[in-house]
């Protein structure tokens, strides 16, 4: 009885975990690779959703909406990077500023606080209309997208530019003496990170059938929770493991949430529970007086 109820949460956890996996992947790039604590995510997730929702409502092909959502997310991330590198604003504050500004921008883009997409054709509609269990094509789609971007990221981080970006997060002084403009790397990296996040927002909006101005709240904390869970399982020694941790962690995180809800966790307490999870994961090493667990972050 209980077991079957757990089993029933698996498909929905897979669907959501893979869909939100791109958020975790984006956060891996900012927090882990660039060591930049980027809080833009809460805003850029909604930005992606807003752009795609508005464009679909205006009758644009969904794929155009998705592509523009990616571009918008990229630009939002670049803004945070520029505030930090050119105006020397603290990295956390730069992210919060852009996130706050995006709240107004998202309202402007949508023209109201939410847009429902249940009655219109989205990018996912052809998949939903297949005469099979809805989960099969949808989960396959999100699997291909998130795993695809994971592998693309892995490839990128083994190119010359990718090395320079990793070194920027690891040892800024060193890579600058080797001739890399670390400001550019930070801006580019945050752009890519938020492009992933916005793409996730755009796909989630179409999957759940609406875009809402508040849908990004707590996204950064949820993403961090996913990464921490993932890293505990697959490690973070290499780039491949870090990106894998994002996807795996995201799925497990959504599974834990789904099980929690089944066991009676009130949906209103979700963010509190997630926050507590992150505090525990980050805090335990400090309590054990281990040095290793400490986050290495720049520009704070």
């Amino acid at each position: 009885m209980i077991l079957s109820s757990f089993l029933r949460t698996i498909p929905i956890s897979l669907e959501q975990g893979l869909a939100y996996g791109l958020v975790a992947l984006g956060i891996v790039i900012s927090f882990r690779i660039l060591a930049f604590p980027d809080l833009t995510v809460d805003g850029s997730f909604t930005l992606g959703a807003s752009v795609v929702a508005r464009l679909i409502m205006e009758g644009a092909p969904p794929i155009v909406g998705i592509l523009l959502a990616i571009v918008a997310g990229f630009l939002a991330g670049c803004c945070t990077g520029l505030l930090n590198t050119k105006l020397k604003i603290n990295s956390l504050l730069a992210g919060i500023l852009v996130m706050t500004i995006l709240y107004s921008v998202n309202l402007r883009i949508m023209g109201r606080s939410n847009i429902q997409l249940l009655t219109v054709n989205t990018f996912l509609t052809p998949l939903e209309n297949l005469h099979v269990n809805r989960f099969i094509p949808i989960i396959s789609f999100f699997f291909v997208v998130s795993v695809g971007f994971k592998f693309l990221s892995d490839l990128f981080f083994h190119t010359q530019v990718g090395f320079a970006m990793r070194a920027t997060g690891d040892n800024e002084q060193m890579i600058r003496t080797l001739g890399v403009d670390t400001d550019k790397m930070t801006v580019l990296g945050l752009g890519i990170s938020n492009a992933f996040v916005a793409l996730s927002g755009a796909l989630v909006a179409q999957d759940q059938g609406f875009s809402d101005v508040g849908m990004g709240i707590g996204m950064i904390v949820a993403g961090l929770a996913a990464i921490i869970i993932g890293e505990a399982l697959v490690g973070k020694q290499t780039v491949e493991r870090m990106t894998l941790a994002a996807i795996v962690g995201s799925i497990i995180y959504k599974f834990i949430i789904a099980v929690g809800l089944r066991l009676g966790l009130a949906p209103t307490d979700l963010k509190m529970a997630t926050g507590a999870m992150v505090i525990l994961a980050l805090g335990i090493p400090a309590l054990k007086k281990e040095k290793e667990g400490k986050l290495h972050l720049r520009g704070v």
Binding site: H158, Q160, V161, G162, F163, A164, L178, G179
Partner: peptide, 20 residues
């Protein structure tokens, strides 16, 4: 080898070519 390859490109334009 990744560290050496970065030093190998000192002052040069870095592209999307394979790092090592």
């Amino acid at each position: 080898e990744e560290n050496l390859s970065m030093a190998d490109l000192r002052g040069q334009l870095r592209t999307l070519r394979w790092g090592v």
